[in-house]
Nucleic acid binder design. Structure first.
Lengths: 118, 118
DNA sequence: CACTCCTGCTTCGATTTTCGAACCACTATG
DNA sequence: CATAGTGGTTCGAAAATCGAAGCAGGAGTG
């Protein structure tokens, strides 16, 4: 069932427009997708190693995600395992500020404990 | 059911580490989450309007997502509807490069039809 | 007053996605 | 031969999502 891999120009889940950013949000909004990209950005990895790095995520979902990411041309399987393509590296780079943000977020939430509001 | 809202320091789905970026990937990796942030970044919106903007996404999930995003301090309900907090605006800004990337992605995929590689 | 229309949700059964242990096929090493 | 590693697939169970319907409240109209 290789149906419904998001691609720009293809209507995304929840967006009939086919706008590229909607396809991207659809693809990235699936469980484990960003995590897999994140892990591969640190080092290429084979199937089993990737699974171990992602706290032993379900192999069936990993298989599905790898198929989707490969279909989206973000990763490719080489001799030494899965690698980000140049398009994939580009995406991870675009996602880079997210890491910095997450630390600001952590700080903001710890400064003001869960309860009141700005 | 206020269980399992991702927060930095709290073990995320698929990451016991509690590292901020993992909590962020968990939160953002839930269906519709990024889309809701995306829509609210354009203009504040009430519940029903938000639902309409997101191709009539399921109201139950919208309700859940709004709770999660509010718990994460990324949005807050005002008189004129839901609004991004400063933390939320910061996140959307960090996600900004994603939009530019998605267009490069779209171009790359249309240049080279699904089949071969780099 | 009643009636209509909007709002922000909640409820709940149906559908889809994810989970995870088991399993298959293959290669290598002892 | 056994044992261990690889890249996966299979399939029943659990969890997440869907979506139509409903509820409560507020505003406007006649």
């Amino acid at each position: 069932m290789t149906a419904g891999v998001p691609r720009p120009g293809t209507p995304a889940r929840g967006s009939a427009s086919g706008r590229p950013v909607m396809a991207a949000l659809d693809l990235l909004g699936r469980r484990w997708t960003m995590r897999v990209l994140w892990e591969l950005s640190h080092a290429p990895a084979g199937f089993r190693e990737l699974q171990r790095r992602c706290e032993r995520m379900s192999s069936s979902v990993l298989s599905t995600r790898l198929d989707e990411l490969a279909a989206a041309r973000l990763i490719a399987l080489h001799d030494d395992g899965y690698r980000l393509t140049s398009l994939g590296r580009d995406l991870v780079e675009a996602l880079g500020p997210l890491n910095a943000w997450s630390h600001r977020w952590a700080e903001a939430l710890s400064d003001t404990p869960p309860g009141d509001q700005r």
